[in-house]
Simulated scan of single mutants.
Amino acid sequence: MASRASSEAPAPGFSVPIPALPKLGRTWYRRGALYWLCRARTTVFLVLVMAMFCFFALSLYAGVRDLLPSTARVVWDGVQVAASVVTLVWGWVTQRRGHREALLDPPTPEQTRQAKRDHDRRVPGRIALGRGLVVLAAPVMPAFAAYIVGWLAAWTTVREYPSEVGARRWLQEHTSGT
């Protein structure tokens, strides 16, 4: 029988292995260079997603904007700028409040894995639904994109994810014998 990998072996003084979290693996425990590379990879990916989404939203909005009379365009553009600023802040605040609440009752590693599986299972249906709704939302797509950008920017700039806090608490509970 092959020996266990060092990452699967319990840490010195611990009787249980360090749980692996989705996207972070076991790097969350030591928060070394590999952990920060995982976080940087996620951030770069999300910045690219946000840029593509904003480009799509603005292109869709430009198509709707061209249908408006020239005087209405100026007014509608001003409304979109104001709405986008408000929704950007709203997205940021919504994420930070949700993050703060999640830190109060963080998920265990098993709950984190289950939430990831549930999320992955729901995504195809949400994509299909989103395709239909995006046509209806075309006139307000910049504000919607600003909300998403605010939410994702707040999510990527947190010091620690709730799943990490939950895994640390789970590890402490299971190593102290409770």
Score class of each variant (00 low, 15 high):
P106Y: 10
P107Q: 02
P107D: 07
E110G: 15
E110V: 13
E110R: 14
E110M: 13
Q111F: 04
Q111M: 06
T112Q: 09
R113W: 14
R113P: 05
Q114T: 10
Q114L: 10
Q114F: 15
Q114H: 09
A115K: 05
K116W: 15
K116I: 14
R117E: 08
H119K: 12
H119Y: 10
H119Q: 15
H119E: 14
D120F: 08
D120E: 06
D120G: 08
R121P: 08
R122N: 15
V123K: 05
P124H: 03
P124G: 05
R126K: 15
I127Y: 03
I127E: 04
I127H: 03
A128W: 14
L129D: 07
R131Q: 14
R131F: 11
G132I: 00
G132M: 01
G132E: 05
V135S: 05
L136T: 02
L136D: 02
L136K: 01
A137I: 05
A137S: 02
A138E: 03
A138I: 06
P139T: 03
V140I: 11
V140T: 15
A143F: 01
A143C: 04
A143H: 01
A145D: 11
A146L: 02
A146R: 09
Y147F: 10
Y147K: 05
I148H: 12
V149S: 13
V149N: 10
V149T: 14
V149I: 13
G150K: 00
G150H: 01
G150R: 00
L152W: 14
A153S: 11
A154R: 00
A154M: 00
W155I: 04
W155K: 03
W155R: 02
